[in-house]
Amino acid sequence: MDDARKAQAPIKGRGAASHVDGRYAVTVARGEDDGWGSVYEDLADAAPLQTQVTEERARSIISRNDSPDIAQSASVNPYRGCEHGCVYCFARPSHAYLDLSPGLDFETRLFAKTNAAERLQAELARPNYRCVPLALGINTDSYQPIERRYRVTRSVMEVLHATSHPFSLLTKSAGVLRDLDLIAPMARRGLVSVAFSVTTLDNHLSARMEPRAAAPHARLRAMKTLSDAGVPVGVMVAPTIPMINDRELEQILEAARDHGATSAGYVLLRLPHELTQVWREWLQLHYPDRAAHVMSLIQQMRGGKDYDSTFGSRMRGEGPFAQLIAQRFAKAHRRLGFGRYPALDTGQFTPPRKPSPQGELF
């Protein structure tokens, strides 16, 4: 990274520390010190970055993939961008498609798909639709803070509830409890499961890495509430990062088991495209004493590179350190009695009626 582009300090309440250029950017902005005072001092004195939300009309809402590394073949993402601001988020590079920065723009320039429920209903009503469990919020969190205002996730869930369509959730937010009235009845029919991503149990580390996500103890409490209501709950230790949070692997699994989780998984840190720059910048600002060592271990697990996207190894890595993490996870998984993620029932799905110009007279 050009010295002129290096961030000088973390930004309170934000994960990224600068507007990292997207790989498709046609023009880029540069701050230069003209000798009359540091441009970085000027930036430090600027007003805090405000979250901007653009309402958009999605043309389609179900995304499909054939990746052998992902259990879910179909997903629904109510939002683009994510205010949680997780510095490690693998979805950050997707903002480059919008000609926006995968750095600060990803967590401050958000898009709400306000017609998501309408599009979902139309897609479920197609004669050739084949029911498979939908994953909500795989790319960005369905329960990020703006959901309280826009309620797009709630509207999508209402369609799934009305059609008995199975789905799974992965979130870092305790806000999922708001929709327990829909989730609990569906869980009793084998139609839903919820997993929480828990990266650390250390509140200070969480505040640095995922500044606007729910605190770790809040996620655990939500996990317990859902479990007590009969909802199958899982935990994802994701991402697992060498010399940052990998030492907590067993403790996170134990805490989750104590709060009702019955299934568990983990994913190693992934650094596709611009995310490697966002991550390196954060690492240098928060842990300059170990930054080189952390990146060395990451590269040892990625064939000498910051990231290797090869199917089969991109989630788990390779080499001795990756094998050690895999062995630790497997041992803790057995000791704590975790099982598999529950299979969801697709046989109860009832397609919605296609909209008729005559309305619902008959």
Rank of each mutant, 00 (worst) to 15 (best):
A4H: 11
R5M: 13
K6W: 01
A9Q: 13
K12Q: 12
A16N: 00
A16D: 02
D21P: 06
R23V: 09
T27W: 04
W36P: 00
Y40S: 15
D42G: 15
A46F: 07
L49Y: 08
T51I: 12
Q52C: 13
V53T: 04
E55A: 14
R57C: 09
I61K: 06
S63A: 15
S63T: 14
R64D: 10
D66Y: 09
D66N: 15
S67M: 06
I70A: 11
Q72P: 05
S73N: 05
A74H: 05
S75H: 06
R80Y: 06
A91P: 02
P93H: 09
A96P: 01
P102M: 05
G103F: 00
L104S: 11
D105R: 06
D105C: 15
D105K: 07
T114R: 05
T114Y: 03
E123W: 04
E123G: 07
A125M: 01
C131Y: 02
C131L: 04
A135G: 04
I138N: 12
T140W: 00
D141R: 08
S142N: 05
Q144L: 03
E147S: 07
R154H: 05
S155H: 11
V156F: 04
L160F: 05
H165K: 03
T171V: 06
K172T: 08
A174L: 07
G175F: 10
V176P: 01
D181C: 08
L182P: 00
I183S: 08
P185M: 06
P185T: 07
S193L: 12
V194M: 06
F196A: 06
V198F: 02
T200M: 01
A207E: 08
E210A: 04
E210H: 04
E210S: 09
E210K: 01
A213H: 08
A214H: 00
A214E: 02
H217G: 06
H217M: 12
R221V: 10
K224G: 07
D228K: 11
V231I: 09
V237S: 06
M243V: 12
M243W: 06
N245I: 10
E250L: 03
E250Y: 00
Q251N: 10
A255P: 04
A256Q: 01
H259C: 12
A261E: 00
A261N: 02
Y266G: 01
V267G: 05
L268N: 08
L271H: 03
L283W: 04
L285E: 07
D289Q: 13
R290N: 10
A292W: 03
A292T: 15
M295K: 09
S296K: 13
S296T: 15
I298Y: 02
I298F: 02
M301A: 12
K305G: 12
Y307I: 13
D308P: 15
M315N: 13
G317Q: 01
G319V: 11
G319E: 09
A322C: 03
Q323L: 14
K331C: 04
H333E: 03
R335M: 04
R335G: 03
G337L: 01
Q348I: 07
Q348G: 11
T350I: 14
R353D: 14
R353I: 08
Q358E: 15
L361T: 10
